[in-house]
Design a protein around this nucleic acid. Structure first.
Lengths: 228, 228
DNA sequence: CGTGCGCTTGACTTTTTTCAATAAAGGTGG
DNA sequence: CCACCTTTATTGAAAAAAGTCAAGCGCACG
């Protein structure tokens, strides 16, 4: 697949006329990154942003004692690092490839220039930023209002919802990473999972498969009306 | 002050040519809200967004058991509710006036229309969204990485930094609300404040004045290198 | 077939919350 | 301006939740 096609298939660029896609292709830098490799670090100069074409990337913050808090796990087709382009010059978090990945890099100035000439691109971009804000608001609520079992139940229900009500969930990250995403540590996560299983809410098979057995029960947990 | 001047003084609309300011003024709805009054509720249809002209507004989420998590305290000149305009049709949180306030309301369709014709407005809007994302990322980090004393220390240092290194801070919200902002409860906040005072890190006078006595000590707390 | 990393489990400590009672502040109306 | 009343803040004791440290298991990978 050539670069223009790749660009055209990114939701962010949906609706852009052909000539501007070509223009984008001219300024794009294709980049392969290996699993575990850092794409950018917090504080780095943000001279542009990335779009993930294939693979998976985690965006995270690091505390002074080295613990990491995952902010996003980026699936393909999502832009990342774009906040630096609009809000300031420095990246506010780290980005690291979880798998061998392939990204496109868009330099800041050329991109801003393009936006200035293309309202539909601007609207796409704003929709993406707004959606992300919404997701963060949910995360903040979850982190601060609820205990870990509630957060976890919320997360499972959300995943299940995203997968069309599917009762069998495949975690796409390790439990260590899930713990970080939930704002806790692996030990606590592990204990809570086994308590959930003991109460017949879920069933785990292998280390990445989770089956929801009692959706209503999880719902109660999520809302704090029940405890383990 | 007439509406056009009010609009022109809002950073979001910086750089808009006069005719478009006039256009905006035509579609704007001025609105007074009293302290304690709800401006919109989570789930309400977002037919537009607001800009705060005077007063203060809190944006918050409510858990099923009624506890609230404050997401923002909006100062004058800031837009709010704009996420609904770009990401979907429903407001993702509640907005309530903390003081008697005065807002301008901008209907969604007319605003999107204007953006489509005005790149600089689009860029302003993106900068605001991006800045907000950045702030949320910091909040998520704080909520999940640190214990309450660290979060509080971080918050004080941040406030002090915003006020140009000023050592005397005036809280612009009640301690109940500060507790919610820190993701904890008033009792815990109260205990931690008194421990901070006992250790000579801060000094409180009245219920809204805090003086930083030992900045380096707060710094250590914030970074988890010290405990109370 | 062993080594390593991720995951689990147990005992213990620390932190935070809960519940309840009291104290202080701020605003209101006399 | 004061007394009252509501709201907001503080404090104590006990319970619960989460984190730390340490040890052990198991599966994947070389």
């Amino acid at each position: 697949m050539d670069i223009i096609e790749q660009i055209a298939s990114i939701p962010l660029f949906q609706g852009l006329p052909r000539p501007q896609l070509e223009e984008l292709a001219m300024i794009t830098l294709a980049q392969s990154v290996q699993r575990g490799q850092t794409i950018f670090a917090e504080g780095d100069l943000g001279t542009g942003f990335y779009v993930l074409v294939s693979g998976r990337v985690k965006i995270f913050k690091l505390s002074s004692d080295g613990k990491e808090q995952i902010l996003h796990i980026m699936p393909p087709a999502e832009p990342f690092g774009e906040v630096a382009v609009f809000a300031g010059e420095r990246f506010p978090a780290y980005a690291e490839a979880l798998e061998d990945s392939y990204t496109l890099f868009f330099p800041r100035t050329a991109f801003i220039d393009l936006i200035a000439r293309n309202p539909s691109l601007a609207l796409n971009m704003m929709a993406i930023l707004a959606r992300r804000l919404r997701k963060f608001a949910v995360m903040i609520e979850a982190l601060s209002l609820k205990e870990v079992p509630s957060r976890l139940a919320t997360h499972f229900l959300l995943l299940s919802g995203q997968q069309g009500g599917e009762k069998s969930l495949t975690l796409d990250i390790s439990k260590n990473q899930l713990a970080s995403l939930m704002g806790t540590i692996p030990e606590t996560l592990s204990r809570i999972l086994s308590r959930m299983a003991k109460e017949g809410l879920i069933e785990t098979s292998g280390q990445r498969l989770i089956r929801i057995l009692d959706e209503a029960g999880l719902q109660e947990l999520a809302e704090g009306e029940r405890r383990l």
